[in-house]
Design a protein around this nucleic acid. Structure first.
Lengths: 106, 106
DNA sequence: ATTGAATATTCCTGTAAAGGAATATTCTAA
DNA sequence: TTAGAATATTCCTTTACAGGAATATTCAAT
């Protein structure tokens, strides 16, 4: 994950790419299969896969003249770690502090 | 979170917005404070905060002529839920299935 | 009512990126 | 080595969006 995670989030911010990622949850697929199942043209699929690969979301395994793309676990783990820094948001402590300050002001 | 989460990810994909989100972890801040601490101009801060607000990442509380922005917990919780659908990626089951298929092919 | 501080909005411009179509590349099989 | 399938790349056009500068709005205090 880059310093601010923006590359990963940018890769996932595109609807077509999000659909690819979701599709690959069930296992590796070739470019042609991805394009077919998502009803997109092959060049678009290749382009999106390239972006996903550069973001580390996906990796390739070449086999004959097919290329099987699969999800990598690292970006998801890194996202978990990143989220951990925000967990206290819903531990109410934060809200209570704000309520406290709000009362002090009156 | 919208159907494919892309609005949330798009909001977080912009470096300046990511810095704002990170800054707000320590508590609500006014627009001026955000702009000052992140060394950006006030109009840019306002614009980014608007995007974050529309994505549900942030909420406002007006006080006099200041507006205090604070993180909402929901998008982070929703991201946790979304990530849960990918947890099995690093439970090795997925890798083993792939190894199995790889051997079968030889 | 007027002023000034804080914030939001508008207009403009440049740039990045997505989709379409065509083409190039790579590999297998014969 | 040629043909064809699978995939990648290039070129083009259009659109979305970020930043800068200027301006509008909103609110409190006087």
């Amino acid at each position: 994950m880059d310093e601010e995670n923006t590359t990963l989030f940018a890769a996932l911010a595109e609807p077509s790419r999000m659909r690819i990622v979701s599709l690959l949850r069930s296992g590796p697929l070739s470019v042609g299969e991805i394009a077919e199942r998502l009803e997109m043209r092959q060049p678009q699929a290749s382009k999106h896969l390239k972006v996903l690969q550069q973001a580390g979301v996906v990796e390739v395994r070449a086999e004959a003249n097919r290329r099987h793309y699969r999800l990598r676990s690292e970006p998801f783990q890194e996202m978990e770690n990143w989220l951990a820094g925000y967990q206290r948001l819903w531990n109410e402590r934060f809200d209570r502090l704000d309520d406290y300050l709000r009362n002090e002001e009156e």
